[in-house]
Design a protein around this nucleic acid. Structure first.
Ligand SMILES: [Zn+2]
Ligand SMILES: [Zn+2]
Ligand SMILES: [Zn+2]
Ligand SMILES: [Zn+2]
Lengths: 146, 146
DNA sequence: TCAAGACTGACAACCATTGTCAAAACAGCC
DNA sequence: GGCTGTTTTGACAATGGTTGTCAGTCTTGA
């Protein structure tokens, strides 16, 4: 089994800061949607959205763009219940995790030294090196619980 | 977006203990493989393995069986890099997480009140209820690092 | 302006997973 | 053992997200 290092929310190791990419209309369009969107969105949803706006972008291009953004650490990725990859432009640049509402998708970015330390120490105890981790918390947000 | 509550490693709420299922040759075969297998294995891999052993089981049946086991909390599930679901029979019955070697797949089950408390408190702080979480740690195990 | 190379998009291909449904297997009962 | 209602199975089709293809287009830097 091979674990996905790129797509999972994890400790981002930014060795090569960010390879330059060309600025194109399509990438700008995807970027814009991501900026406006609070919740995680799938490639398919983003593609459909762009379509309705007139600024159509090829589906393959949407996928490629999101992949590039994820590789560069500019968006976070996690998987919906259907195994579909969903993307989100995040406020924090640094490593963080998410507290997501199961019902409406409302997301809070969370971070803290507690878990980071814990994860590190657990890995150390077992002699594991080059460590990363994935962590997401799900629940019902106050609004949906009301 | 809808988050998967069933397939992700999380706080298992075992309300209805375990609905009875019929014992069949196919389920026994799947069970046996899971018992022998240390690492996470995908439905496809398991199916192929059963095939080579002669004790063939339909692919759909393998999927259904693994799904049932996962629903009953008898196997843990996470996703490989390809987004493929991978399964593992775990030693601990209670809630736990995994420390997985990215290279060879060697897995250590981990658990601790620290993260559980932290996750709970974070959720509480933001008013989220009915909380669950997913957490996996990846790294290079001592053997592979050597 | 111009060439080199990156980017795009329509479409096909891929592949894990799920749906279908008649045939077979199971469990409990006589 | 047989009977019977129910569950389970499996071959196959269908679904659906994602990636591959590749000729044509666009960016960029000189
Ligand atoms: Zn984020
Ligand atoms: Zn972290
Ligand atoms: Zn486990
Ligand atoms: Zn936990």
């Amino acid at each position: 089994m091979r674990i996905d290092r790129e797509r999972a929310t994890q400790v981002t190791v930014r060795d090569q800061p960010a390879k330059e990419h060309r600025r194109t209309r399509q990438r700008a369009a995807v970027d814009e949607v991501l900026d406006e969107t609070e919740d995680f969105i799938s490639a398919q949803e983003l593609h459909a959205l762009l379509r309705t706006r007139g600024a159509g972008v090829g589906l393959a291009t949407v996928y490629r763009t999101l992949q590039t953004l994820a590789d560069d650490g500019r968006v976070d990725v996690l998987r919906s219940d259907a195994g579909e990859a969903v993307y989100r432009r995040c406020v924090r640049e640094e490593h963080h995790h998410h507290l997501v509402c199961r019902s409406c998708g409302a997301t809070v970015e969370i971070a803290g030294p507690t878990v980071e330390r814990w994860a590190k120490s657990v890995a150390d105890q077992h002699g594991y090196t080059d460590v990363s981790h994935t962590l997401e918390i799900f629940g019902t947000c106050p609004r949906c619980a009301a």
